[in-house]
Computed example of a mutant assay.
Amino acid sequence: MNETIIRPNPSIVYMIFQLKTNQPSSKLIYSIGPNGVFPDTQGMLQQHSDAISTVIDYSQGETSEVSYLKLRRSHGVINMTSWSILMIMGYIIARHFKKWDPIWFYLHASIQTISFVAGTAGILIGYALSKKVDANVNNHKNIAIIILVLGILQVFAIILRPKPESKLRKYWNWYHHYIGRILIIFAIANTIYGLSLAKEGSKWFLAYGISIAILVIITIILEVRMWIVARRKTQSTNNSSHPQSLEFAYQT
């Protein structure tokens, strides 16, 4: 690079430069480093706070932006839909609709299977995306690995599910229920973290937040309803057993 003019603006940077080379590359990367971080002796930035790439067509004198926006948004939509939204729906069905046996089981199993398959695909898309854009998202990827491992543990739980009359069924229930809940918590946290990394704006946060809020409200309503029904059954049992004890005492 022989000549460079940078004119800052509150939100736009205008840059004019002249490049002299015998073998020009068709790909050009514009990158910005963090404050106080300067290029090394070879002119390379060790850290990027932002970057964009373009492809130059020298024969036509045109440039086109290389954007991974669609891939990035596909990764986000698939993961937020599968690991958190669908997983929560599957949890609600399993916990509150068991009276619709066996429909609830097939719905629960189908939804969670779709969630796992789609979520795994979303994670793979994310790994491919991180290599293409050379992004530093290690924490996001590490949490995704935890989520994937928890999902695999749930798959093993289904495969190794003991019969209802088995003594191990109680421990299996604990394992299956709590692993699922932990998975959902990690998924929601990582989705919010991923949206902040993507810097997509408030609309994505709002849409995801509303979706989760609706599911949480539905869960709370169903939990309260289940508690009320259980309390009524307990009171009914106590009331029906009390006269029997009096009658027994009287006969004695």
Score class of each variant (00 low, 15 high):
26 S>V: 07
29 I>K: 09
183 L>G: 01
145 I>P: 03
31 S>D: 01
69 L>T: 10
6 I>A: 15
129 L>Q: 04
28 L>N: 02
197 L>M: 12
174 W>C: 04
212 I>N: 07
236 S>G: 14
167 K>S: 14
238 N>Q: 14
31 S>C: 03
138 N>V: 15
19 L>F: 05
12 I>F: 00
219 T>W: 15
191 T>M: 10
84 S>P: 08
3 E>Q: 09
177 H>P: 00
199 K>V: 11
213 A>M: 14
208 Y>M: 00
46 Q>P: 01
75 H>F: 11
212 I>K: 07
131 K>N: 11
65 E>D: 03
28 L>F: 04
113 T>S: 09
213 A>D: 10
161 R>G: 07
153 L>C: 01
70 K>H: 06
135 A>F: 07
95 R>N: 10
131 K>F: 11
17 F>H: 07
206 L>H: 08
247 E>W: 10
184 I>P: 11
56 I>F: 09
250 Y>F: 12
8 P>A: 08
116 F>N: 01
32 I>H: 05
182 I>C: 10
61 G>M: 05
154 Q>N: 10
175 Y>I: 09
243 P>N: 07
235 Q>R: 05
200 E>L: 06
66 V>T: 08
101 D>C: 04
229 V>G: 03
151 G>L: 08
21 T>F: 00
11 S>H: 05
50 D>R: 05
201 G>N: 11
23 Q>V: 14
